[in-house]
Structures are given as C-alpha cells and as structure tokens.
Nucleic acid binder design. Structure first.
Lengths: 349, 349
DNA sequence: AAGCGCCACCCAATCGATTGGGTAAGTGTG
DNA sequence: CACACTTACCCAATCGATTGGGTGGCGCTT
C-alpha cells in the first residue's frame, strides 16, 4: 500500500514533518541515524513518533534528491561482453545479490567485446553518475583502464584480470593445470586446446596453465596444437574442425563449455564418439555440462562468488582502501566425456 | 577527456555560465532546445558559444538534479525470472538496445520466479523511482499486477502475457501448432509434451496450441501425455524420465530448448537415439539448438524483437496511450532431432 | 540568584537543473 | 516623438534531502 514510486506522488520528508508538527531536518536526522537513539537530534518519544509515521506512510527517501546532496547515487555499473553468455549472467546474479544486501542497485550493459562499445557504455554509466564500475570484459592491452584510472573512476575487474588492477576472477591458471593433470593421468599424450579469444585473460591463463603443466609432466605440445577461437558454440565447432583437418588428438581441452559443446558436435560429424574416441573437457561447469546427452567434464569456476567478490572489492575501493586481485579456486569435475582411459596411449600421428 | 562521472568533479551548468558570463538559465535553455535556433532564449551567436563550450568541457547534465526537478528519471526497471536463462538474457539485450536509443537506462533484477522476491524487487525499483517497469516473469493469477495498476505504476509485460495487460510476447499458441503439424506430417501418432511451469503463459499457450491442433488433426492426446516441469535442463530430464517410465512415445515436444536438451539426455540413457527412435522438438531456437551434437529442431521466437517491442510499448504507456498486447510470429526450424519420418507410424502402446 | 551546559529542536544554505515571469535595449510604426 | 513589440537575456522559486550552525528553555551547581 505504499504510495511512492512511478505512479503515485511520493511521501516527502516535509509531508511527514508537517503532519508531526516538527521541522524536516529533525525528521531527516531521526530517520538517518540508524541507532535507536537519535543522538542529540530528538527525544526518544519524538523519534518513535517519526519512525512510526514514516512506516505508516511508506516513506522512502527520494534517491534523486539524496544523491544530489550527498553526491552518491548508490548505483554500480556493470559491463559485460554479453549477458546471454551464461557465465557472465551467473556472475551478475552474484553481483545483484551482494549489491542488494548493501543497498546498491546495479546497471548492466553489454559491450559485445567491442572496444568502441565498451567506451560508449562506460560513458553512459558515468553520465548516470554511478559510484563505481565492475568491468567484466577487460581486454588485455586496451587503453580504457589506464584512462579510467586517470579520470579517477573507481572500478574493479571481474572474470578477466589485468596486471596492476584489482580483480575478482577464477584462478584460471590452476584450472588449466587441473585439466592437464587429469588428461595426462588418463593416459593421453596427444592433445589439442581450443583456446578462446587471445585478448581475454581467461583464455590465456587457462591455456597457459594447461600447456605449462603439460610440458612439466613431460608432454609435448606446440603452438599448432593451440587454436584460438570465439567462446561460443559455433566458435568451438570451427576450432575443432580446424584441428581435425590436420590431426587427430585423443583429447580436446576447450576453455569454455560452449566451445566444448560445439567441438562435440564437430567430433560427432567426423564419426568420432566423445568420451570413447576423443576425450573432451570444458571450463566453467555451467548447469548444462552435467545434463548433456554425453555429460561434459568441466572445471567448475565459482561464478556466483566471483560476482559477489567483485562487489566487495569495489566497496573497498570506494572506501579508498588498497585492493589487490582475488583469485578463487576452481575444481575439476570429471564426467563421461573424459572418464575413460585413453584408447590408444601411443597417440595418433 | 571528459571529467564528469564517478571520480572527477563534474562540469555544471553554472560553471559554463560563469565562464561565458551569462546566466545558468540561459545556458540551460540553449542546451535544452534541441533545435539549432534556441527560440527566444538566446541569439544564434550566443547559442553557438554555449554549445561549443559545453562540448569542449564535456558537459553532461546531472541526472539526479534533472530528475529531481522534472520528476522523471529516464530509468526503466526490468524484472525477469533469471538472466542466466538465455531466453530472458536475449530479450534483455533487445531491451537494452532499444532503451539506449531512446535515452533510457535499464535496471534488471532476477525474481527467480518467487512471488515474494517479485514483490521485493518491484519495491526496490519503485524506490529508485523508475519511470516504468517491464515485467518478464508474470505469474498467472498473481495479485501483483492489479496492485501495480492500482498504484498507477506504468508497466508492460514481456515474454509472458496476462489477460487485460499490455504485453510483448511470442505467439506461443501458433508455435505449439507449428510443432503439432510438423510431427503429425512426419507420421507421428504417439507423442508427449514436456509442458513447463503451469503458472507461465508461455508454457500454457505452447502446450495448448500443440494439443488443440493435434486433436484437430485427428490425433489422440490426453492429460497424462502432458507433463509439467521446470524450464531448465534438469527439469526436462526429470519430465522425460517420468514419461518413459510409463510409455514410449515416438516424439517429444518440450516447450523450452533447455528442457529439450535434458530430455535428450534421458532418452540417451534409456538407449534411445534422438532423431531415430524418438523425435524431439524444442522451443525458442536458442543459439545452442543448431550446434548440438544432434542438432535440435526448435521453434524460433523473435527474442530480440520481443525485448525491443516491450520498450516501445512501455513508451506508449508512459505517454498515456492505450496499448494492447503484441504477439510476434515464431517460425519452426526442423533439424536432425526430428527430421526423419516416424520409424513406426503405428506407435507403441 | 547568577551562571553554565545540554537537550530538543529550528533555520537556512546547498546540491544542479528547470521554468514562469520579468526587464532593459533595440527596432519599427504612425 | 511616443508607443508597441521583439530580442536577448536575468531573477528567483522549486524539486527533496542533508547538514553546519544556531537558540530558547530547563535543570543543576555553587
């Protein structure tokens, strides 16, 4: 029965003040001091009357007016490559939860991983006077981040990291290592990597973690076994086709579940059975992985926690604290797509 | 090099006015009147100087102050079941595009299809003083919509419809009909429906469209052939299990691609091959459908357009116009999962 | 009884932009 | 030359909440 918001005319501080016969500033102080004693502002009795009436009338302060005075909007801007990417959508769920708990609201915008669009969306957010930004689409080597620093815009990175900036990410290097160990231990010696976009730290770190660990185990892998690709299903399919046109690995590591699904499709159309002829491992363990016709092995990254952590880091940045990068630990979940030992340990040339 | 936004101290109207030696109100009028002649407000020469300086200083009006005065925030609230549902995420992309073109910014929140959460999120949005709402999670028979109407909150529905409210949806009945015709024509006579959540108009309409058309073609189908389920992969799997425990249809229609994928998994673990032993058709034609190992037949709903349409309808509501429901036409895309003629037209009892 | 302090408030400026209502200078008309 | 009218501006109130700086009145002290 509240009457604030879009349609109705909201209750204002002054309305309450008039009805109570006191000054608006007193009402403000009472409502503002969260402690039950409005220290020095009003008597306990008055304070109670104020709170009572505020509740009854469904008073909620006008964020416009409040923000105008305090220069803080309680808004956080979130920029992601695209929300229709399940990974980012899930991280955003974490952001929303955490932000709501702290009384912040969040804007999200899709940049489609396009630098011009990243700039445009950033500018829109700043024009809205967000208190800070969460950037989920950082491109390595882009000039945007130093520029934001120069403009003193408070921000943190999420999902992808970049040297020298606070970020909340998965420990992608570790994730890649886990996959390398798993495939090595199941007897594979002949593997390829579907590596993702080379401008994303996620792709680079996962690939590097895999390759480095693979070599340290004594495995062989060179640049031609690593194929860069888009993160989506079609990208994974194309990458797998490119790989299969040249050689036949016994295992594929795709740095993204969707790319892995695309690769599974390509394998099937080459007459290969996933999990028997070729092992496939994905990354992120999206809700789809376990439910696929052939359940997909995948590295589970704590997506919700990454989102939540990003908000917490941003809080600290806003308080002026020094903040470093946080990397959350992933775990490997082995399923049918890579459970069997390698059929032909010698590999195929 | 703009200096507005989170970190820097923004340029204000007054700053410009002082630098130009004129009154802030004059600056405001010049910048406000979009026509190149600031009619009556200033001379052409002054107007040009003002616009020039505004550009140079990177002036952008403070939305807080502007909104305080004009009582319009330029904010739209969007409530969806969850953004990690690819369907809603894609609709949101459409919303974002369209809203940005019109100078609006959008909030999204997840309600998780929980009535209490729907209320909470709605209240948060109204407390933020959004100009209007786009509701993507309407529950049939919920009391929330009449209440919003009573509070004079401008809103439109998206994705799901409800009698008597403006909405932008897919023509789900037609979509169900297309599937019925397709399966009938490929020789199937023994079908089951994975119907989705009974509180969602999407589920109900798609199912009803299918069932009614099926009957009108002479087919038999009764209530036990229709299984309600969650929209996600696990829900689809469970529903398929329930169906297979009782009978063996030659075709399954799932009202959602993710449920269809789950069903494909269940079929496989029963030793049935999708597309050969059992046909499967999904709904929405998400980007995944065509790329699955066994490509999934699906009804393509114009998700981006639905989002865009929702924004346009809301614009009209905000202008006080009368607005009715819009239903966009879907198209069926047949793929390997249901391309073959029914293996056993007589069906299996 | 004069003095002091504190309690419980009130006053007014302020944030940045909008907008109805002036007003002085300049132009044209009869 | 006086009057009306337009041009090109300025003035000040306003939106709703916050906040530094008062100020009466009461109680207590010595």
């Amino acid at each position: 029965m509240k009457d604030n918001g879009a349609g109705g005319q909201a209750v204002t501080l002054k309305d309450l003040a008039v009805e109570l016969g006191i000054h608006p500033s007193t009402v403000s102080r009472v409502l503002h001091s969260s402690s039950d004693v409005a220290k020095g502002a009003a008597s306990a009795a008055t304070a109670e009357r104020v709170r009572e009436l505020a509740r009854k009338r469904g008073y909620s302060p006008d964020p416009q007016a409040m923000g105008l005075r305090t220069r803080r909007t309680g808004l956080l801007g979130v920029i992601v490559p695209r929300l229709s990417d399940l990974v980012l959508a899930t991280m955003y769920e974490g952001i929303e939860q955490s932000a709501a708990e702290l009384g912040f609201s969040t804007f999200v915008m899709n940049s489609l991983d396009d630098p011009a669009e990243q700039r445009r969306k950033t500018d829109i957010m700043l024009a809205r006077r967000v208190d800070g930004l969460i950037i989920g689409d950082a491109h390595l080597g882009s000039g945007l981040l130093p520029e934001l620093t120069a403009r003193k815009v408070p921000f943190v990175l999420m999902n992808r990291r970049a040297q020298g900036y606070p970020s909340a990410t998965c420990d992608d290097v570790l994730g890649g290592e886990l996959v390398a160990e798993h495939l090595w231990n199941t007897g594979h010696r002949n593997v390829s990597v579907i590596a993702g976009e080379p401008y994303a730290s996620t792709a680079i770190d996962r690939t590097a973690g895999f390759v480095d660990r693979w070599k340290s185990l004594g495995g062989e892998i060179d640049d031609t076994d690593v194929v860069w690709s888009r993160f989506d299903t079609a990208g994974g399919r194309e990458a797998a086709e490119a790989i299969l046109s040249k050689r036949r690995p016994t295992a594929l590591f795709a740095v993204n579940d969707f790319a892995a699904i695309g690769a599974m499709g390509a394998l099937r159309s080459h007459g290969l059975t996933v999990g028997k002829d070729v092992a496939v491992v994905g990354f992120n363990d999206t809700s789809l992985a376990a439910e696929l016709p052939i359940p997909l092995s995948s590295v589970r990254s704590p997506m919700l926690d990454i989102g939540r952590t990003a908000v917490q880091l941003l809080q600290r940045v806003l308080r002026g604290e020094d903040v470093e990068a946080v990397r959350l630990k992933p775990t490997l979940h082995v399923r049918e797509s890579s459970a069997q030992a390698c059929p032909d340990p010698s590999g195929t040339p």
